[in-house]
Each structure stands twice: as C-alpha cells, then as structure tokens.
Simulated scan of single mutants.
Amino acid sequence: MIRLSTPLGDEVLSLKAGERVSLSGMIYTARDEAHLRMQEKGIPFDPQGAAVYHCGPVVKDNTIIAAGPTTSARMNELSGFLVDAGVRALIGKGGMGETVRKELRAEGVYLAFTGGCAALAASRMTLKGVFFEDLGMPEAVWAIECRDLPLTVAIDSEGNDLFFDVRRKAEKRFDKMF
C-alpha cells in the first residue's frame, strides 16, 4: 500500500492504475451542485494539491456519521476546472469518462473508494469545516481531515483506466464465447 498525504504533489504522477493507496490529510467533498457553485463563485479552498471526494456525507452534531462515495461519472463534465486549478486527485465510485482521463493526464489521478463502505470512510474522518452550507448536507463542500483512507488508483496520470480496461477485457472474453 502506497501512503499519500495532502497536499499532493508530483508523487501522484508515478501511481499506476490498480495500485492501492492510503490517503491522509485534508480532503473536500463536492457533488453536482457544489461543482456548479464553485464554477460560479470560485473554489472556497486552496486547490493546489487538493483531493476532491465525490460524496455527500451524513453529518450530525459536527460528526461525520457516513461518508460513502457518489457515482463520479455524474461529474464528468464538471471536473476540468478543478484539475486546471491544481486539484491532484478526484475520489469517488465507479468509473469516469474519456474527458476526465484526458484532463488528468500528467496532472493527477482518479481514486476509487468502494461503494457501501460509508461507515468505514466515516470512521477515518474528522469534520473541519463547511463551505456553501446553504446547499444542504449532501451538496455542501465539507472540509474533512482523513486518516488512512483506503483507495484504489482507478485512472492514473498516463490515462490508464482500471474500469475501462476491465470492461474491455470482459467484452473480449464475451465475444470469444459466441
């Protein structure tokens, strides 16, 4: 397991699709509405070396109760401005599209977290703040300190895509069967 800490630097450029990593440090949640608000009003945190987690956490009494990932493909057309601003890692569930693969080339990585493990994620997180709170719990940008969040490199900085490669191999096997 490769240990990473935010803010992230050029070390992410050597990661390869399929490798397991452990992430510690500040991360920021953002779903659809948060991406749109940041495009309109600006990024409320320092994006240099940041990690953005596609997540709408459940927060009660300033404690994160659950923090499972949302489907990252929903942010395919909304992520480029973050990468351009210096964000080095996007985190979420499922694959992302060709647009994101191109945007991440030589800039950063997409890290996958297993869906259904919201309690595991929350057990490794401490709430530090919130931006755009008026968007409501799932859509606000939450600033979170994480400790050893287990992730898999799904898209590396060379454009290798774990989800795409697995899907392509399965399709080839299926085609050979018929």
Rank of each mutant, 00 (worst) to 15 (best):
G115A: 09
M125H: 07
D148G: 13
P44E: 11
R37N: 09
E98G: 07
A73K: 06
G97A: 10
E33G: 04
V141I: 15
G95Q: 01
F132G: 01
A118L: 09
A154D: 00
G25P: 01
R74C: 03
R167D: 05
D148V: 07
G95H: 01
T70A: 04
V153H: 02
L127D: 00
T152H: 01
E139Q: 13
N62S: 05
A118P: 05
P44N: 10
E145H: 02
L120C: 08
T70K: 01
P57G: 12
I27V: 15
G92C: 11
A121E: 03
I91D: 10
S79D: 13
I91Y: 09
D165P: 05
L104I: 08
A51D: 07
D32W: 02
T152D: 05
D161P: 02
T99M: 14
M125F: 08
M137C: 03
V87A: 08
E33K: 15
F113Q: 01
D46H: 05
E98I: 08
C55P: 11
F45Y: 09
L104Q: 01
C117V: 09
C55G: 10
H54I: 08
G95E: 00
E139C: 06
D134N: 08
D61P: 01
E98R: 05
D165K: 04
G108L: 05
L135A: 05
P150L: 07
F113M: 02
F113K: 01
T99N: 13
M137K: 08
R167W: 06
K102Y: 12
L23W: 06
N62R: 01
A140N: 10
S22W: 09
F45L: 10
L135E: 09
A50M: 08
G42N: 11
H35V: 04
V58W: 07
L36K: 15
G115V: 07
L111W: 05
W142A: 04
G92Y: 03
G94R: 01
E107R: 15
M38H: 12
I91F: 13
I155E: 13
A121H: 10
F113A: 10
T114I: 11
I64K: 05
W142H: 14
M38T: 11
T152Y: 01
K128P: 00
T71H: 02
F132W: 09
R105M: 15
T70P: 06
A154V: 02
G56K: 02
N160L: 06
F132D: 11
W142I: 05
A112D: 02
F113C: 06
T29G: 12
G42C: 06
P57C: 09
V83K: 03
L120T: 15
E139H: 15
I91G: 08
L78Y: 12
A112K: 02
E145N: 03
P138G: 08
C117M: 13
L135F: 03
A140G: 10
L151A: 08
K102Q: 14
R105H: 12
A140C: 12
P138Q: 06
G86C: 13
K60Y: 11
